[in-house]
Simulated assay, not measured.
Amino acid sequence: MDDLLESGGALAAVPPDATVADVQAAALDSGHLRILVRGPGTAWQVVHVRDTLTEPETAGIRGLPRPALLFPAGTPVYTVLSRMRESGNQLALVTQSGKVLGVVTITDVLRRLFPRSRPAPASPR
């Protein structure tokens, strides 16, 4: 699964003591609706920006994040898809030796399993 990771991309993440405004700013800056909440080691969480919309901007995000799905780098793609579907998660963190290597989305997984085929060339008339 680690081959699905894009190299060099920064994770859209906030610290655990972030405010609602911090999450919304991270979403605006990154273009992502799901923002990672950094934890010690691999104890990361995910907060969806929609869950912040009814909260005051100065409020902390405590109670809003959910545990992130974690997979070791060598996990088979079919296993990842199955667990993502079962849990309703749209993204998962890829880990190796207790470190987060990056994020894989359900779109990444589906593209791997069902690559787009090139259209057949038009036949001459």
Rank of each mutant, 00 (worst) to 15 (best):
A18M: 02
L110V: 12
T107H: 15
P16N: 01
V49Q: 02
S7W: 04
G98Q: 11
V23H: 00
G74D: 14
A120V: 15
T58A: 13
G9M: 08
E86N: 05
P40W: 09
R118Y: 14
G39S: 05
L93A: 13
G41A: 12
Q45K: 08
L113Y: 15
L101G: 06
T79V: 11
V100C: 10
R112F: 15
L113P: 15
T107A: 15
V20E: 06
F71R: 05
R66L: 04
R111P: 00
L4V: 05
L93N: 13
D22S: 07
G88A: 07
D3L: 10
S30W: 13
P16T: 00
D108G: 11
Q96L: 13
T107F: 14
I61A: 00
V80W: 07
G60L: 04
R38F: 01
V103C: 13
G9R: 11
R118K: 15
R83D: 11
L93D: 12
V77H: 03
V104C: 14
F114W: 14
T75I: 04
V49I: 09
E6T: 10
L28D: 05
G63Y: 04
V23D: 00
T58Q: 11
P72Q: 10
T58V: 06
D22Q: 05
L93Q: 12
G88Y: 12
Q45V: 03
P40N: 11
R85N: 07
A21E: 03
V80A: 14
T52L: 04
A13G: 02
E86Q: 13
L110R: 14
R50F: 06
Q24E: 01
H48F: 01
L33I: 06
V14C: 05
Q45P: 02
P121R: 15
T75W: 02
A26Y: 03
A59E: 03
L53E: 01
A120W: 15
G9P: 00
I35S: 01
V46K: 03
L33Y: 09
L113I: 12
D22C: 06
